[in-house]
């Protein structure tokens, strides 16, 4: 509901988060107990408490490698958002353009983009550029496709209504098509940010310079499984925070009821 009051929202938020949190906590406890009971070696699976301990001990190291991962991820994602939405909008504006470009986009979408990582290293080296570009190409496709699909899903009768009040192409886009596309665009953003994180991590595996992906490979090389798990934990937290930020923004922007297919 769009206009429910703050107290109600807070309550529903707590009840929404409450259930999963309890289950998550129970899982951690089970994990801890089972690993200890079965005497699983630390190099195979450390306990949650050991991972937390390791995180505390190596906090600085983890942070040093988190920042490049976070910043490069945001750069790749940001680029994907700008270029992807731009192209999605252009496709809707120029039907001729659509006919020649959209089949290519669909074809490229099928290419497993992570396979491009070695190629990007050959072209762009081992630095930030390669990693950002890999995140970009992965996150780019859901942005284009969702933006375009969102605009296309506009009710033609609503466009006709706007025309009946002398709306020009630009007004129709800004006041009808773009708001109509917003729920789709947010779906694209949510998929895109997830993809961008994957892109950066894979690129960090391959370039092996810095970042949490690099730290994971490094820890694995030293059979330091607690550090590996600590890095995965930090990475997961980053992923969840980025995703949650987009969901929060979506809640602020898309306040109207959207057809069920999008939820």
């Amino acid at each position: 509901m769009a206009n429910s009051n703050g107290g109600k929202n807070l309550f529903s938020l707590i009840s929404q988060i409450g259930g999963p949190s309890v289950i998550f906590f129970v899982m951690l406890v089970l994990w801890q107990v089972i690993v200890i009971l079965l005497k699983v070696p630390q190099a195979i699976l450390p306990t949650p408490l050991v991972i937390i301990e390791t995180m505390a001990k190596h906090w600085e190291l983890l942070m040093i490698h988190s920042w490049p991962t976070l910043s490069e991820c945001l750069m790749g994602f940001g680029l994907a958002v700008v270029v992807g939405m731009g192209l999605g909008i252009s496709l809707a504006f120029f039907p001729k353009f659509h006919n020649s470009v959209y089949p290519l986009i669909v074809a490229f979408q099928v290419v497993p983009k992570v396979a491009l990582a070695p190629l990007f290293i050959v072209w762009f080296g081992l630095g930030t550029l390669s990693r950002v570009l890999l995140a970009f190409v992965i996150a780019f496709f859901p942005m284009v496709v969702n933006t375009y699909a969102g605009i296309l899903s506009t009710d033609p009768l609503m466009v006709r209504m706007a025309h009946s009040f002398n709306a020009n192409r630009w007004t129709v886009f800004c006041k009808i098509e773009f708001p109509n596309a917003l729920p789709y665009i947010f779906s694209g953003l949510k998929i895109g940010i997830t993809f961008a994180v994957i892109g950066i991590i894979v690129a960090e595996f391959v370039t092996a310079q810095k970042g949490l992906g690099y730290l994971i490979v490094f820890a694995e090389g030293n059979i330091d499984t607690p550090l590996l798990m600590a890095a995965i934990t930090v990475l997961s937290v980053i992923g969840v925070v980025l995703y949650a930020a987009i969901v929060a923004l979506e809640k602020m922007v898309v306040t109207w009821d959207v057809g069920q297919d999008l939820h």
Binding site: D155, L157, M158, R160, M161, A162, S164, F165, N166, A167, N168, T171, K175, I176, P179, L182, V254, T255, W256, D257, V258
Partner: peptide
């Protein structure tokens, strides 16, 4: 000229007042 269609075709992202004001903006 003002047109009323078979369906209300209101913009779900706008309040009622803003829906009524739409022609003023587009004109």
């Amino acid at each position: 000229t003002g047109v009323v269609f078979q369906a209300p075709v209101l913009m779900p992202w706008r309040t009622i007042l803003k829906n009524v004001m739409f022609p003023i903006e587009s004109l």
